[in-house]
Simulated assay, not measured.
Amino acid sequence: MFVCSCFGVTDQQIKEHAAAGACTPRQIASVSKAGTDCGSCVRTIQGLLGRGACPRRTLIESGGTALAETALVDAPLSEAA
């Protein structure tokens, strides 16, 4: 199915880019131009990325609390408060 008709980008191509590490609509746009013309496909791209197309997203979500705790430990005291 075509996700971006302006540049002829399919849902399969979006999933392939996501598997290669492009996990945000902006990153998808930089590798495929999808979403950079009329913008009507951006919500569809967001939906595809939110449905497990991005392996890194699953990893981040599974370790989200640990990552947040690490960020607080590494932050200066003025930022952590």
Rank of each mutant, 00 (worst) to 15 (best):
M1V: 05
F2H: 06
V3L: 02
V3M: 01
C4T: 06
S5R: 15
G8Y: 04
V9G: 01
T10C: 02
T10F: 06
T10N: 03
T10W: 03
D11T: 05
D11G: 04
Q12A: 03
Q13S: 03
Q13D: 07
E16G: 02
A18C: 04
A20L: 03
A20M: 10
A20E: 07
R26G: 14
I28W: 02
S32A: 01
A34M: 04
G35S: 01
G35P: 00
T36P: 05
T36E: 12
D37W: 09
C38G: 06
S40F: 08
S40W: 06
C41M: 04
R43H: 13
T44S: 03
T44I: 01
I45D: 06
G47T: 08
L48V: 08
L49F: 06
G50H: 10
R51G: 11
A53I: 02
R57C: 11
R57N: 10
T58W: 01
I60F: 08
I60R: 10
I60T: 11
E61C: 04
E61I: 08
S62G: 14
G63Q: 15
G64L: 13
T65H: 10
L67I: 15
L67K: 12
E69Y: 04
T70P: 00
T70G: 09
A71N: 13
A71E: 15
A71Q: 12
D74L: 13
P76C: 10
A80S: 11
